[in-house]
């Protein structure tokens, strides 16, 4: 079973970091295979940022994501650029604070107010990506929540671990069961 994902937003939203945590969880803690590639603009903050992640039970040969099973959109540009590539019947996860009226046809839509959860409930918008990642894992189990928590522990500075895990849990809770 191979799952292809796109996580897209603007620089500074942590889209790439969410993808790396997902891959780390899969490879290091869930004994799965994962492959991540990325693209970013020259401006490190505010420009387009996108990462492609493949999670699979078997060896990954073909390295590109052409038609993703899942699109995570953290900004309106992500819809414009990547929605047409989403597989029919795929899953679209949006940050509903950033994308007000997402198109609804032909796929499963999951809306999470990730930015407001991060900034108001957790107190720091920097963990918006973890809320989004939580929603993804809650809805799809592409990797185990436990593996993501372990990935957070080895990937973020010690002082930020609790905040990241809290945000991840809020995302998990928000996912449709």
């Amino acid at each position: 079973m191979r799952t292809d994902l796109i996580i897209a937003g603007v620089g500074g939203q942590g889209s790439l970091m969410a993808g790396t945590l997902l891959g780390t969880a899969a490879v290091v803690f869930d004994n799965k295979k994962a492959l991540q590639t990325q693209s970013y603009s020259s401006e490190l903050r505010g420009g387009a940022a996108v990462t492609w992640v493949i999670v699979s039970d078997e060896e990954i040969t073909y390295p590109r994501v052409v038609h993703p099973d899942i699109l995570i959109a953290q900004a309106p540009q992500a819809i414009v650029r990547y929605l047409s590539q989403l597989k029919p019947g795929g899953i679209l996860i949006v940050d509903s604070d950033m994308i007000k009226d997402p198109p609804r046809n032909g796929y499963e839509l999951i809306q999470v107010p990730a930015t407001s959860i991060a900034s108001k409930e957790i107190g720091n918008s920097i963990v918006t990506n973890l809320v989004v990642l939580g929603a993804l894992i809650g809805a799809t189990q592409v990797v185990s929540p436990d593996a993501v928590e372990k990935a957070i522990h080895i990937s973020v500075p010690k002082s930020k671990v609790d905040m990241n895990i809290k945000a991840f849990h809020r995302g998990l809770e928000h996912a449709p069961k």
């Binding site: 891959g23 295979k33 390295p63």
Partner: peptide, 9 residues
């Protein structure tokens, strides 16, 4: 750049 920036096991 594709391989250089690729993350994998």
């Amino acid at each position: 750049a594709f391989i250089g920036h690729m993350r994998e096991e």
